[in-house]
Each structure stands twice: as structure tokens, then as C-alpha cells.
Amino acid sequence: MKQVQVHPERCLGCMQCMLACATAHSRTKSLFTAVGESPLPKPRLHVGAGSHDEGFPNRCRHCDPAPCLLACLPGAIFRDPDTGTVLVDPDLCINCASCAMACPFGVLRYHQDWVAPAAKIVAQKCDNCLERQHEGLIPACVEVCKTGALTFEESDEALRRKTREVARSVSMGMEEQPLIPTGVQLLRQAKKQRFEMRCR
């Protein structure tokens, strides 16, 4: 099954994925109108700075077993049997933050949402864009990612592709193919250097 794969080494921190995610989870599904919605749609994935200030996209891993699911008090967190996606039922959620305490990746947030009961604050996390997938679309964050930091593919295919890329980058005679596109490399390098200068 295709899954969103994260390749942090390619992330530039442009946050386009966050915008696309918030829009995909809005009522109107268009950025232009989504910004006027109340409650304001919010992203389910979060781009932060990595250990050297490079970009780092952080989203739910849909772990199995899922610590959040085991810790959920009202039984609001469940796994979609078809896709393995870990989901939150906004009707059952009591906003206790037990899931935030259990999640080793820190991906849960708590806010209102147009699909939740009005004015109710509920736990929010990535839902693999199941709604979009039903319509034959790929997850919004992947669709918008320009650097290949987010891809939608089988996990063994992702692994094979990475192996291929590494092999090619060190093989003589092949057409020169950097492991990470030169532009991406340069920008990440610049961020890292800035960070190191600050640390000195």
C-alpha cells in the first residue's frame, strides 16, 4: 500500500505542505476561501527546524502498535482497518491530552475543527488525507512538495529508490546524479552554516 514517506534530508522548510494540509482539511478546500473560515483550518503536519536548523517535516507515523491509541482514555483513537491509518473520532475525544503525552513524535495538537462538534476542542493529527484518497487524489502535503521531501509510495519502493540513488551517486560512468538535488543541498548547507556560526 502506498504511504506518505518522509525524507527529511530534502526538506527546505518552505512550509508549503502545512498550507496545503490546512487547506485540504478546510471546509471549502480552497486556500482563498479557507483563510476566511471560522474556525481557521490548521495543518496536521508541522515543519520545524532540525538539529542544525535545516527543515524537518514532522507528521504522524501511524505507528503499529500506536502509543496514542493505547493511551486514549475515551477510546476515540482507532485504526482504519483498510489503510492502517490512525484516526481520532472528534465526537468521542475529551481533549485530555493523554495522546500528546504518549506520542514520542509530538505530532498531536488540540483545536476546533469544522468536522468536530461546534466549539469543541479536539485532538488533531494527520489522517493520511483519506478523504482525498477516496477521490483518487494523493495526500495534499505530497502533492505540493517541490523537493521530494514528502513522497507517496510503497515503503519498499521508497527504500529501493533510495538505494538506487545512493548507488548512482557513487558509481563512475553513470551520468552525474547528486544524491540530493544541488539546489536543495546548497540551501540546506547555508542553513546549517548559519546555525554553526550562531553556535560559535
Binding site: P8, H46, G48, A49, G50, S51, F56, N58, P104, F105, G106
Partner: peptide, 10 residues
Amino acid sequence: PGFQVGKLMP
């Protein structure tokens, strides 16, 4: 501020 899992060493 801004600490998250990506800040941790691999």
C-alpha cells in the same frame, strides 16, 4: 522554543 523531535540527534 521550537524544540521538536527533528532537533534530536539521529
